[in-house]
Computed example of a mutant assay.
Amino acid sequence: MYTIVTLADVVQIPPTEFHKSSIRAIEDFVNNKYADKVIHKVGLCIGYHSLISASEGLIGHGTGIVNVNVDFRLMVYRPFKGEIVRGTITHSNIEGIYLSTDFFEDIIVPPPLLFENTQWGADDTGTEAFIWRPDNGEGGENEFFFDRAEKCLMRIEQEEWNDLSPQMKRPDDYDMERRDKYGLKLGPYRILASMLHSGLGPTLWWLGDEAAADEAPEEMEIDGAADEQ
């Protein structure tokens, strides 16, 4: 899920940063430039990991900015194909189920990658969601709902990359409201996941009362806070 990659860059340290140690100034520059950003075909950058090497600083003429050539390591988020990842359903529509890992939200499970006999429908309250209807072994069917805010396990199946750098864009790419085949705004990095095997999907399906008991104290605390307000 998390990997370490090696990059090289020119770190620019302005005079206002001279009160910092060199290693701290380099770390701050790298984090400001890369953290929470996607590098094409590399992954989502989490933050600076360690310094490999740094050259002597060269002072820019007339600016006082010190330029340092550095090799460093970054921690990135890029789960591998076949990895089982935990996420939370943020919303669903006929195009699929959208999930978040709290810090990364471009994860989708399309309908073909859901359990067999899963269909888009509505429950007794009229709330629309995907519903899995497996045979209960007695000639009938059970119903299991992919509800919003459910914690799920999913299997990573495919990555989708879009190079959104200015030199790669066509004129029509500047339409920020343009939607893709999933009805989402075009992003630099997206993960397609599946819920096709036993143990995947909402964890409450498989853990039952044990999971419900684990979540009960949190729900009670929230309810108590609401009463105090």
Rank of each mutant, 00 (worst) to 15 (best):
Ile108Tyr: 05
Val109Trp: 01
Pro110His: 14
Pro110Leu: 11
Pro111His: 09
Pro111Asp: 12
Pro111Ser: 14
Leu113Lys: 07
Leu113Thr: 05
Leu114Val: 04
Leu114Cys: 11
Phe115Cys: 06
Phe115Ala: 03
Glu116His: 13
Asn117Gln: 15
Asn117Trp: 14
Asn117Ile: 04
Thr118Gln: 13
Gln119Phe: 08
Trp120Asn: 12
Ala122Glu: 13
Asp123Val: 03
Asp123Leu: 02
Asp124Cys: 05
Asp124Tyr: 04
Thr125Gly: 10
Thr127Asn: 06
Thr127Asp: 11
Thr127Glu: 12
Glu128Lys: 08
Glu128Thr: 11
Glu128Tyr: 04
Glu128Gly: 03
Ala129Gly: 15
Ala129Glu: 04
Ala129Leu: 05
Ala129His: 06
Phe130Leu: 13
Ile131Asn: 01
Ile131Arg: 01
Trp132Ser: 02
Trp132Gln: 02
Arg133Asn: 05
Pro134Lys: 09
Asn136Glu: 06
Asn136Phe: 11
Gly137His: 08
Glu138His: 11
Gly140Tyr: 10
Gly140Ala: 03
Glu141Gln: 09
Asn142Phe: 11
Asn142Thr: 14
Glu143Ile: 01
Glu143Tyr: 09
Phe144Met: 06
Phe144Val: 02
Phe144Leu: 10
Phe144Lys: 14
Ala149Leu: 07
Ala149Val: 06
Ala149Asp: 14
Lys151Glu: 15
Cys152Ser: 08
Cys152Phe: 01
Cys152Ile: 13
Met154Gln: 01
Gln158Val: 00
Glu159Ile: 00
Glu159Asn: 02
Glu159Ala: 00
Trp161Glu: 07
Trp161His: 05
Asn162Lys: 02
Asn162Leu: 00
Ser165His: 06
Ser165Leu: 04
Pro166Gly: 12
Pro166Ser: 14
Met168Gly: 11
Met168Val: 10
Met168Gln: 15
Met168Thr: 11
Met168Ala: 08
Lys169Glu: 09
Lys169Thr: 05
Arg170Phe: 09
Arg170Ser: 14
Pro171Gln: 08
Pro171Met: 08
Asp172Ile: 04
Asp172Pro: 01
Asp172Trp: 06
Asp172Gly: 03
Asp173Met: 10
Asp173Ser: 04
Tyr174Asn: 07
Tyr174Cys: 13
Tyr174Glu: 15
Asp175Cys: 03
Asp175Tyr: 07
Met176Leu: 07
Met176Phe: 13
Met176Ser: 12
Glu177Cys: 01
Arg178Ser: 03
Arg178Trp: 01
Arg178Gln: 09
Arg179Thr: 08
Arg179Phe: 07
Arg179Ile: 15
Asp180His: 05
Asp180Glu: 07
Lys181Phe: 03
Tyr182Lys: 04
Gly183Ile: 01
Gly183Lys: 03
Leu184Gly: 01
Leu184Pro: 00
Leu184Thr: 01
